[in-house]
Amino acid sequence: MAKLIKLDDKGVEFLDKIMELSGETITLCDQCGTCSGGCPFIAEMDVNPSQIMRQVMIGQKNIMESKTMWICASCFTCTVRCPRELDVSKVAEALRQVKLREAIDFIDIEKISEEEARILPSIAIVGAFRKFTG
């Protein structure tokens, strides 16, 4: 069943906030799909990167519940290919930050086994904690 959505000021505020945080003019997105087609993580995502751009543009805040932004690892493949030179990585980072600033963490140090902790390079652990905690 088709979803009925309202375009309202709250949606605009959400878009403005993400545009400010990311520094990207999301309204420039042409929806060409280059980001999604090239994303190495696409198989793991529930919502395509181009859809994220679309949903933010029309102010759909429920996009925050998608796991896509947590899958994005800032590999910048989309960044170097977007025909409008939009940096989708920055938009994903902005969305993560909105959630993380509600003091919600997305990684639990207790769940890393002793064996793993011994072999994991420090850049992996520091990187993950910097991306997944507020």
Binding site: Q31, G33, T34, G37, S50, P83
Partner: peptide, 23 residues
């Protein structure tokens, strides 16, 4: 409706593999 991100080539058949989001 979608712009391919990149192509690869099947080394055996020389066919071109197109990856693209049907937006």
């Amino acid at each position: 409706r979608g712009k391919p991100s990149h192509f690869t080539e099947d080394p055996d058949t020389k066919q071109v593999i197109v990856t693209v989001e049907d937006t």
